[in-house]
Simulated scan of single mutants.
Amino acid sequence: MQLDQYISDLLYRYECVILPGFGAFLTQYQSAIVHESTQAFYPPKKKLSFNAQLIDTDGLLANYIAKKDMIPHEEANIKIASYVRFLYDGLHKGSILEIKNIGTFRLEEENSLQFEPSYRLNYLTSSFGLSSYTSPQITREVYKEEVQKLEEKAPIAFTPERRTSNGWMKYAAIAVIGLGLTGAGSFNYLKNVEAHNYAAKEEANIQLEEKIQQATFAFENPLPAITLDIMQPKGNYHVVAGAFRVKENAEKRTLQLKEKGYTKARLVGVNKYGLFQVVYGSYVNSQEALSILRQVRKEDNKTAWLDVRSL
């Protein structure tokens, strides 16, 4: 279906794309890999995963569909809901469903949804055009064996020359003395060059520091500071109501919960996927948090979950 392509398009630009009512597709950067045994090289990529807990709409997919198909936002939401029903119908029939270029889904025991990512596309735009390849292993033993064979065919022998006279000893001694004098002169010359280079380097460093100290930077139109007024919850056990890409939607959800009587409801900030997370409340005691979670699932939200972490 066309929604497959729309989700795939968004994964190039965003790390989290939510299919409302079904789950979220997440991407995470993975460095280049060289397989030790096969010598295969794999370029950097975005590793694809799926989270069935993130089902609340953030408006991203609906806005993209409305823009692409030039339809109202409400009609885009109807398309998404129809697509989700199509996926669930196939899964409950025992089919293995494929979302093109993203992955396959299947239902296992106790309606556990399993996701297998596709490796056809690399969603990391900086790796565009790079593909995996296998490099032959370098074997240096081959050259060693060839050298040994050449030595066997043409051995090199050193034979002492006949000593006809010891006159060559005199010339050898003169040459050694000359080389010693030349070496001493060269050593002194190199020391002078090294000292000159060091002095020039120090002078350049001093000039550079003066330039840096004199430099000033002025911004005529500085950007306004962004502040987030977020209340810090107490306790590490959080009963989550939902996660939203748009902060206004998260604030609206918080007000709805407070109107329903959940006085501890609040916006706790941005999670690792870049979404604004709203909770019914945060608790120090795990048993109290589980009790509230069961009550919430029974009375208000069947998809609420427990997030255990320090904020």
Rank of each mutant, 00 (worst) to 15 (best):
S126D: 12
S126N: 02
S126K: 14
L97R: 06
S118D: 15
L97E: 08
Y123R: 12
A62E: 11
A66G: 08
L91S: 06
S49P: 06
L60C: 08
T134C: 05
P72T: 00
Y123G: 00
S112P: 04
K67R: 08
L130W: 04
E74F: 01
F105I: 08
R120S: 02
D89K: 14
P117A: 02
F86T: 11
D56N: 09
L124H: 00
E141S: 15
K93Q: 14
I80D: 02
E108W: 09
E108N: 02
L54Q: 11
Q53T: 09
Y83R: 02
S118A: 13
E75Y: 00
S127V: 05
T104F: 12
A81D: 12
K93P: 09
V142Q: 08
N122P: 13
N51A: 06
K46P: 01
A76S: 05
I55W: 10
K100D: 06
E98N: 15
L107M: 15
L124F: 15
A81I: 04
T139C: 09
N122W: 01
F86D: 14
Q53A: 14
S82T: 12
A62C: 05
K67E: 04
K47A: 11
L130G: 01
E116P: 03
N51R: 03
R140E: 06
T139V: 14
H92K: 14
S126P: 07
R120V: 12
F115G: 04
A76N: 04
Y133P: 03
K93T: 03
L121W: 07
I96L: 12
G94T: 13
G59D: 00
H73M: 00
K47V: 01
G94I: 10
F50I: 03
L107A: 11
S82Q: 10
Y88L: 15
K79D: 05
T57S: 15
G103E: 12
L97H: 09
V142Y: 07
P44Q: 01
S118L: 10
V84L: 11
I96H: 14
N101V: 02
D58G: 15
I80P: 09
K79V: 05
L124M: 08
K93S: 11
S135M: 13
I55A: 14
